[in-house]
């Protein structure tokens, strides 16, 4: 079996003069959960739509499960599952009826469906809700059902477009446990998300910004090797004076308040600690501690996007 579940080579999509996706190349291995992160309008959904054969690339090429995304879109759609941001469930049908409907569309037999339903509902936390009407379900349960429906035909590759928006942290863990179980069986997952704690769950991820892939790696690599974002955590008082002083000094790209602590983000921050301490103390700020901490994925993400904007300003 091919070890690559999907790959693109310099894939681009233009809408008139707008470049939605700009020469994006990446690949997802079998059994891998791969995350696409980016602000709204960065090109994540357009990329997924091209991989599904719903949009034709302006240039470049791609393959999904060995099939060409332009010429063999039918074959791809038979073999993948897709949960979009607004996955449509039938509100008047029950949970089980929705699942059976989607399975039926993909030609799964009745007998196989019943067995899979029990299995998937157990893992996903929908057991005992078979006969409930979808209109009566809470948001988190609907999201789980949408995912269950996309799994009815046992796809080899799953596309998830912001699957957990508005789902609480505990339910989110449950969903991820299911994704890991699928990946362990060899299925691959391509997920787009806004949640940085969710991005940490991916095996690998890519930052997408202004249509381009601007960084790629494991979450750990992103945090330790992207030198654009290092964080000093400063415990000091008074906070408002400290914020003003540090921002005015312009030594850091960003100085933000984190509860009763200050996070100063920038490059080569270790060597800025003692001058920052001295400066703060000279302005009457008492510094209790100042230490370098591991940046959050969000720190890295935002710093990386800023550096793209500096290198290549947006022209009007």
């Amino acid at each position: 079996m091919n070890a690559i579940a999907l790959s693109t080579e310099h894939i681009s999509k233009h809408f008139d003069h707008f470049v939605a996706v700009d020469h994006v190349s990446f690949s997802v291995r079998r059994g891998e959960i791969y995350g696409l992160l980016g602000p709204n309008g960065a090109g994540k959904t357009t990329t997924i739509r091209m991989l599904l054969g719903l949009l034709t690339p302006t240039s470049g090429k791609g393959a999904v499960l060995g099939f060409d995304i332009v010429k063999q879109a039918e074959a791809i759609r038979q073999r993948v599952g897709y949960v979009s941001q607004k996955f449509s469930l039938y509100p008047d049908l029950t949970v089980a009826e929705n699942f059976n409907f989607y399975g039926g569309v993909y030609g799964v037999s009745r007998a196989a469906l019943a067995e899979r339903r029990a299995d998937i509902f157990r893992t996903i936390g929908l057991s005992g809700q078979d006969q409930e009407r979808v209109s009566a379900l809470a948001g988190g349960s609907r999201q789980r059902l949408a995912l269950a429906c996309a799994l009815a035909h046992e796809p080899e590759l799953l596309f998830l477009d912001e699957p957990t928006a508005g789902v609480d942290p505990i339910s989110r863990r449950g969903l991820w446990d299911l994704l890991y179980a699928l990946a362990a069986r060899g299925a691959s997952v391509l997920v787009t998300t806004h949640y940085m704690d969710e991005a940490e769950n991916c095996h690998r991820l890519a930052f997408i910004y202004r249509g381009r892939l601007v960084a790629e790696g494991t979450p750990q690599e992103m945090k330790t090797q992207q030198m654009v974002a290092q964080v000093v955590e400063i415990d000091c008082e008074p906070l408002d004076a400290a914020l003003t002083v540090l921002r005015a000094a312009r030594w850091f790209d960003e100085v933000a308040l984190y509860g009763a602590l200050i996070h100063a983000i920038g490059q080569n921050v270790a060597e800025k600690i003692s001058p920052a301490r001295a400066l703060l103390q000279s302005k009457g700020v008492a510094v209790k501690s100042a230490q370098v901490i591991l940046p959050s994925l969000e720190d890295v993400f935002i710093a990386r996007l800023r550096s793209v904007d500096v290198d290549d300003p947006i022209s009007e």
Binding site: P39, P169, Y195, M196, D240, L243, A256, L257, F301
Partner: peptide, 30 residues
């Protein structure tokens, strides 16, 4: 999205530093 979220929190910091009391609900633990 994360970029707008950061910006929103920058605004909240400004309001906070003006002495306004804030209660905020959030599903994001960060």
């Amino acid at each position: 999205d994360p970029v707008s979220r950061r910006e929103f929190w920058d605004l909240l910091t400004e309001i906070h530093l003006q002495g306004v009391t804030i209660i905020i609900t959030t599903p994001y633990l960060d």
